[in-house]
């Protein structure tokens, strides 16, 4: 249940999935489909639902899910041709998380394999980016949320290792929250005055 409170897991479930209603739906015609003429949703109607609604309805065999746009045939053509240079977040920011949930629901072996292949192909690049270079990772815009989190985790641990090994002097800094608030308030004007007077500092030994 720890995933219950996870923000990304929550947002991944917001992805829309096209479904066909095997039964009608009383009073939800307009809500489910703007073009619907009647108050009730008729049987066999195809609508898009957010993923969080689907599992329970599917369990009762009330809807039949179809493949969402982000796992479309055309998407896989691109991903399989050049897995490392595809901006997955443009298809779906939670590409893998949502994919895992979706395949779990449908028991779709083929999709499962495709996802796994795509992830392994991309993972090596992520690892190199995290471990070997300290400069800004230039392909960040290609990553899905899950990959970004992995990259940052790798980065943080490398940095911690580096700090420990070369034991650079620790520097105490202002709290994040205070800094962010100051930025919001002062809007950049802050800081310029202090820089000017830096030359004539007094040094007081206490």
């Amino acid at each position: 249940m720890s995933r219950y409170f996870d923000i990304d897991s929550f947002l991944a479930e917001q992805t829309r999935v096209p479904v066909v209603f095997n039964s009608g739906c009383t009073g939800l015609g307009k809500e489910m489909d703007k073009m619907c003429q009647t108050r009730d949703l008729p049987m066999g109607e195809e609508v898009e639902l957010p993923f969080w609604l689907v599992p329970k309805l599917f369990e009762q065999n009330m809807v039949g899910p179809k493949m969402p746009d982000c796992f479309d045939e055309r998407v896989w053509q691109v991903v399989e041709a050049e897995p490392k240079n595809v901006p997955l977040r443009d298809f779906n920011p939670h590409f893998f998380e949502f994919g895992a949930r979706f395949t779990e629901l449908l028991r779709d072996e083929e999709l499962h394999e495709q996802l796994e292949k795509a992830f392994t192909a991309r993972y090596s690049k992520l690892l190199v980016g995290a471990a070997l270079s300290t400069s800004e990772f230039k392909d960040r815009h290609l990553l899905s949320r899950e990959e970004e989190k992995l990259l940052d985790a790798g980065r943080d641990s490398m940095k911690a290792f580096h700090d420990w090994k070369y034991s650079t002097t620790e520097k105490l800094t202002v709290a994040h929250t205070v800094k962010a608030n100051k930025k919001r308030r002062a809007g950049g004007a802050y800081g310029s005055n202090q820089r000017r007077a830096m030359g004539d500092n007094l040094t007081n030994r206490v």
Partner: peptide, 15 residues
Amino acid sequence: AAPEDAAAILVHHQA
């Protein structure tokens, strides 16, 4: 209950 009523209740409950 009719399946369409059950479906509607389920949708509201999930929401």
